[in-house]
Simulated scan of single mutants.
Amino acid sequence: MYTAFFDLDGTLTNPKPGITRCIQYALERLGYPVPHEDDLVWCIGPPLHASFKEFVGTDELAHRALELYRERFRDVGLYENEVYAGIEETLSAVAASGRRMFVATSKPKIYADRIIEHFDLGRHFEHVFGSELDGTRADKAELLAYALGQTRVDPARAVMIGDRSHDVTGARKNGMTAIGVLYGYGTLTELTEAGAHHLCAAHPDVVPHCAVLAGSP
């Protein structure tokens, strides 16, 4: 039976207001131009340190920007977020076959846990895997390797479901099946070029894909 790993941002929840406003806050505090929130959606999903470096140019300033981001995110931005409509039904349908389910997100685990708890999604998942505040396991391939080891799941019998290229490449590097979802923040081109095995226009489409995989020899 296949084990399902779900990304968080752009897959289970829509975090755009919280993430973009916290990026704006950090850039403003550092005295940098503040882009419109619609021009910041490319930052949703990938590790934020690398995204901030695109704006500020150095690791040192990117680290400071991330500190400022978290200053607002931990109490305000974290809750400027919403669960995608119908995601509860999709998760229940995926779980109906009895398969194991986990969250695997580049977001720090301390925040991911609070988001999952806030939206009462924890009952669907055995565990939430996330990065550490110091950046450990922010890389999706590293995170998934760690999660597979901790759960003792055979990667050949595991699927990663996410909306960005790093979800797909992380899965493929670990020998997992990669399902790209198109309702989040990754484009069709991004997910295709990354090598997604399957693409889903809406999250209910994940269910039949998982059913087919579960029935594979």
Rank of each mutant, 00 (worst) to 15 (best):
M1Y: 12
Y2T: 13
A4F: 09
F5K: 00
D7P: 07
D9G: 13
G10R: 11
G10N: 07
T13I: 13
N14A: 06
P15S: 04
G18Y: 03
R21Y: 13
C22W: 06
Q24F: 12
Q24C: 11
Q24P: 08
Y32S: 02
D38M: 05
L40C: 01
V41F: 13
V41L: 14
W42R: 15
I44W: 14
P46M: 00
P47N: 09
H49T: 04
H49V: 05
E54M: 08
G57E: 07
D59N: 13
E60D: 13
H63P: 00
A65E: 01
E67Y: 11
E71D: 10
F73V: 11
F73Q: 09
R74Q: 11
D75C: 03
L78H: 00
Y79W: 14
E80G: 02
V83Y: 03
Y84E: 02
G86H: 08
I87A: 08
E88A: 06
E89F: 00
E89G: 02
E89C: 00
S106T: 09
K109T: 15
K109F: 04
Y111M: 06
A112K: 09
D113T: 13
D113E: 15
R114Q: 15
I115G: 07
E117P: 11
E117V: 14
H118G: 09
D120K: 14
G122K: 09
G122P: 10
G122T: 08
H124L: 05
E126F: 04
V128T: 14
V128E: 05
V128L: 10
F129Y: 14
D134Q: 14
G135A: 11
A138S: 15
A141M: 07
L143C: 05
L144S: 06
Y146R: 07
L148H: 03
T151C: 04
R157L: 07
M160L: 07
S165W: 09
D167C: 04
V168N: 01
V168W: 01
T169D: 07
A171D: 01
K173R: 15
G175M: 02
M176A: 00
A178V: 03
I179Q: 05
V181C: 08
L188W: 14
E190A: 04
L191Q: 01
A194W: 06
G195F: 01
G195W: 05
H198V: 11
L199C: 06
L199Y: 10
C200K: 00
A201V: 08
A201C: 05
A202Y: 12
P204R: 10
V207D: 03
P208H: 08
H209D: 04
A214Q: 06
G215H: 14
S216G: 12
S216M: 11
